[in-house]
Amino acid sequence: MHDSLQQPAWLSVSDDAAVVKLSRPTACNGVDVDALTLRAPTVRDIRLASKVASDDEERELQLFASLAQVSRQDLEGLKLSDYQRLQQAYFRLVRDDGDDLRADAPAGAASGG
Rank of each mutant, 00 (worst) to 15 (best):
D3I: 01
L75H: 08
Q6R: 09
Y83I: 06
D99A: 09
R24Y: 02
S66A: 14
A65N: 10
F91G: 11
V31P: 01
E57H: 13
V19R: 12
D16C: 03
A105K: 13
A27F: 14
G30R: 02
D32V: 04
V20D: 07
L61M: 12
S111D: 09
E58P: 02
V19A: 02
A105H: 06
S111N: 05
A18G: 00
E57R: 13
A107I: 08
V13T: 08
S111M: 11
L11Y: 06
S14P: 04
D82H: 05
L75Y: 03
I46E: 14
Q6Y: 01
L5C: 01
A35T: 09
L36F: 09
G113T: 13
P25H: 02
R85V: 11
L48A: 13
D56P: 10
D96S: 11
T42H: 05
R47Q: 14
L101C: 11
N29W: 04
A49W: 10
D96Y: 12
S12R: 05
L36H: 05
S4T: 09
L11T: 02
H2R: 04
D82I: 07
S54L: 13
T42Q: 06
A110E: 07
L67H: 06
V94Q: 06
A109I: 05
E57I: 11
G30C: 08
D55K: 03
Q87T: 14
G113K: 08
I46K: 05
A18M: 03
L63E: 07
D99I: 00
P8D: 13
R95Y: 15
G77F: 01
A35G: 01
A110R: 05
R39E: 09
A109Q: 11
V70M: 00
A40Q: 10
P41E: 06
A110K: 00
D104P: 04
R102L: 14
S12P: 00
Q6C: 03
H2T: 05
L48G: 07
R85F: 05
G112V: 14
L80R: 08
S111C: 06
D74M: 03
D16M: 03
V52N: 14
Q88K: 04
R47C: 08
K79L: 12
C28F: 12
A49K: 04
W10Q: 04
D16W: 03
A18L: 00
R85E: 00
S111R: 10
L5I: 01
Q6E: 14
A27H: 10
Q69Y: 03
Q73I: 08
G112I: 15
F91E: 10
E58F: 01
